[in-house]
Design a protein around this nucleic acid. Structure first.
Lengths: 347, 347
DNA sequence: TTGTACGCGTTATCAT
DNA sequence: ATGATAACGCGTACAA
């Protein structure tokens, strides 16, 4: 029975095979809202479709309906477990909603964001979820803004995860509060002289975490001197470099506070390479609580960010939010102290 | 100038605005192969498109052209760094080819694979890349086979990464050879009595690795007794459980050989929890060499699988391969011994 | 309940 | 080089 047809059977083929009209076939297969179809014909159509190996053409459906069932997601780097977790969360949530997901990676090139949005716009995705960090650099975002504006003008919805974006609904992570709470917790364990791996100043997420932490430390009577604030990249390598700089400079500190987990891991790596014992010599904290931390020794103190919830809220917002920025919600980030920051007794 | 139009401007709008025909507008914007358009009109059209905020409708293009520019990718779990790396590799490779990527996750439910393929089929993606493991269970794959068959019948192309699949082009990982080489390397370092965390018997990847390892060990004069072969899940938890079973049974072994990195990590976790020192008491190896291993101590011996290359070859095959299974290629898996398997002196 | 016919936005074939 | 116009596959208002 191996049919060697080169092109796909269409709904017309199915209709003809079942001896019904195109409309009936359509209704039988995709079930119209308003119309219903007789059980007899319904079976005939389904059977025909089955035996012809019919698969509806989603593109044609999109045209006729004026809407697709896919949502667009833009991440910077799937290799980063933080992004991977969020992407996975969105993917599973999407599956539950019977939605599909077209995913684009920028490869950490923020300039590419605008183009990705435009491309997803062309595909007429139902919504676009931007996940990642925003840079405090208008130039980098100029193209992005107009892309978003055009998309929204057609009725598209945009949601930003983990970054603020004026005019679009955001799922905001309370980085300041989380970092602030971390400062308190560390002071509570006896830490006084943090080395802050702050990340790039213009990286808004890193900046928020650094600011929240520094502010609370100052309030608690332990202001962080500029020397103890290093602004390397917001990556693992950035953590490595920051740590090396601190070691070479011979700085004095009792805990290394990184603004992201991967930075902390980079710092940990460099520390052990340089003979700095963690946590014996100094403590170490990250931010994010990515799941791969579970296999790192010593277990890393960090600030937990609920990526699962982030993803779920993001999709909800993308589907049902107002879409004008008024639907923004905030998720909490909560410190989790582990073995990398044991209580410090001495001054 | 804020236009508040609800629906997207179409190519007709652009054509009218520029005072040209639809055909000319189309050619000016997307550049036909056969026809060319005068510089004068070309500019007018581009300008009109710009000022109207026109974005081509990819669905309509797909209809008219009879082909999309997107490829489908199915992975089981983005949370697993192995899948994440491959997905990221495919995504960046796709971007280079100006292709888009719609990604589906099965959530480790292999039964769902067939449905995912059917869905991607409906979207008329150019090619489908299946990444992951195949189970030696015909029932699990029955639906998948017919889905693939239908898709291929329409001219679709399917590529399988890291799993064999009859009739489709595969990028095969030489698990047997890699595991075999690992056995040699371990024996070379003085290991004699491995505990094999073999994974599920019906999981083809796990089985291939276990078989390759066991066979070579036997050849080298150190056959693995059935007691030292544990078949827990092919997951981190599986590694944890397998390790616990071995410890509770009081088995004697000098190295734990896991069939995947995440299993090894689970085993490492359980070992440290139970007071078994790695690598002092026993050695440990994984399989895959996922990038997150870099932050694990002791550094984990494993078998390197070139995920980047895997992804790239996969996309190439998906685009240019014969599509009938004759384009299959194999990538090597090479042992990398690190600190978790130091040379053993004693017997 | 079923069928007819038009429209969705674009490309491609044919004239001009 | 440019312009009509017929597909592409489907949903749906309208008619029966």
């Amino acid at each position: 029975m191996a049919r060697t047809t080169r092109s796909a059977p269409t709904l017309s083929d199915v209709a003809r095979h079942a001896g019904v009209s195109l409309a009936t076939a359509s209704r039988a297969i995709n079930g119209s809202e308003t119309r219903t179809v007789g059980e007899e014909l319904r079976r005939r159509v389904i059977d025909s479709a089955q035996s012809l190996g019919y698969a509806p053409n989603a593109n044609a459906q999109a045209m006729a309906r004026g809407a697709t069932r896919t949502i667009g997601v833009v991440v910077h780097d799937l290799t980063d477990p933080y992004f991977a977790e969020i992407a996975d969360g969105i993917a599973t949530a999407a599956t539950e909603h019977k939605l599909f997901l077209t995913l684009a990676t920028t490869g950490n090139k923020i300039e590419a964001l605008g183009d990705m949005v435009t491309a997803l716009d062309s595909m007429r995705v139902r919504a676009i979820i931007l996940v990642g960090a925003r840079w405090k650099d208008p130039d980098l975002h100029r193209g992005l803004h107009t892309s978003i504006e055009q998309y929204v003008r057609r009725g598209g919805r945009v949601v930003a995860l983990g970054m603020d974006f004026p005019g679009v609904d955001c799922v905001h992570i309370d980085n300041e509060a989380g970092a602030s709470a971390l400062a308190e917790a560390l002071v509570g364990r006896g830490y006084r002289r943090p080395l802050l791996l702050a990340g790039p100043e213009r990286h808004s997420t890193a900046a928020a975490r650094a600011a929240g932490f520094a502010a609370r430390m100052a309030e608690l009577g332990h202001p962080i001197p500029p020397t103890h604030r290093i602004g390397s990249d917001f990556t693992r390598t950035g953590g490595t470099i920051g740590m090396r700089l601190a070691i070479e400079a011979g700085l004095d500190y009792d805990v290394v506070v990184a603004t992201s987990d991967v930075m902390a891991l980079g710092a940990l790596h460099e520390a052990s390479r340089s003979g700095v014992q963690i946590p014996t010599d100094v403590g170490l904290t990250g931010f994010g609580d990515v799941s791969t931390l579970i296999d790192v020794r010593p277990s890393l103190s960090t600030v937990h960010v609920p990526t699962r919830q982030l993803a779920r809220l993001g999709l909800d917002l993308a589907l049902h939010g107002p879409g004008d920025g008024n639907g923004s919600v905030t998720v909490e980030a909560i410190p989790v102290l582990r073995d990398s920051t044991p209580p410090r007794t001495g001054a």
